[in-house]
Design a protein around this nucleic acid. Structure first.
Lengths: 146, 146
DNA sequence: CTTAATGCAAACCGTTTGCATTTCA
DNA sequence: TGAAATGCAAACGGTTTGCATTAAG
């Protein structure tokens, strides 16, 4: 199941949940599908309005994201910044975490197999049935550290 | 420096920063000092109001926390819940991360040396001068999983 | 037709700020 | 006395909701 392209899995999951298709959600799905890293709702809205893509009202952006999150298609990323970020939940190979520059707000993805091993071994020794994990490294990016 | 009790270091750092002492902040410091894990501003306010402790207005709670965060005495913890949490920054031996039950909102601390090693080795290979990291495991606690 | 999707504007709510007052050094 | 600390209430800003409209199946 996770081999199918994300956007297809998404449409499928939505259909399975008895949802009807709509242009706003389709536009959000398509934009999310092109993104490497987490966006805020506002960034999403602007990206959709700015380009040729279909404009989507802010309320719909939030509703759609919330909805996709509930279906496990999107996950929220908390970076310590004012706004929450969202990104698609992708195949294990693309699983990543985030670097946040506290100076300029830049957010970058990274991944590290050793870290994942540590997390997964840890997850079995902890009093919680772990379903997901989020790791954020804070610091200064190259420009800000200079 | 990190061998001194946290509350003393805090008072010291505040004095060094040219701050004057005050009852509200003192009460917040004392409460934070007794806590094992992160609290929300509201929980702090309630704890101070409820008990015999000195009541502190919500605005002051936030201002004090923000202030302490700026001095590196307190850190914020984002758990994906509505409110941000705060806890004192303690000695390395007490360094920990958080387990969050998405069912009931329970937040528990945990620590894992292997994980810390993975993080610190990773921190040197990443395009960010890492100053801190935050790890949150989400899942279901024993009661909620049952 | 019946239910979901969407937009708009208003409501929410955690957090911050302005301002007047008190307290500390 | 001058600067910091505090409380109160109002302002903020990201997110959510209510309601009327449109569109999918």
């Amino acid at each position: 199941m996770s081999e199918a392209p994300w956007i297809e899995r998404a449409e499928q999951a939505l259909a399975a949940a008895g949802r009807k298709r709509g242009g706003a959600r389709r536009a959000v799905l398509e934009l999310l599908d092109t993104q490497r890293c987490a966006l805020t709702a506002l960034e999403l809205e602007d990206a959709l309005r700015g380009r040729s893509e279909r404009a989507v009202s802010r309320a719909s952006v939030y509703r759609i994201l919330q909805d996709l999150e509930g279906l496990g298609l999107v996950q929220r990323v908390e970076t310590g910044q004012a706004m929450v970020r969202f990104e698609r939940v992708c195949a294990p190979e693309e699983h990543h975490h985030h670097l946040v520059c506290d100076g300029c707000g830049l957010v970058m993805p990274f991944s590290d197999p050793a870290l994942e091993r540590a997390i997964s071994s840890l997850s079995e020794r902890v009093p919680l049935k772990v379903s997901e994990h989020e790791i954020v490294l804070h610091g200064s990016c190259r420009d800000c550290a200079a």
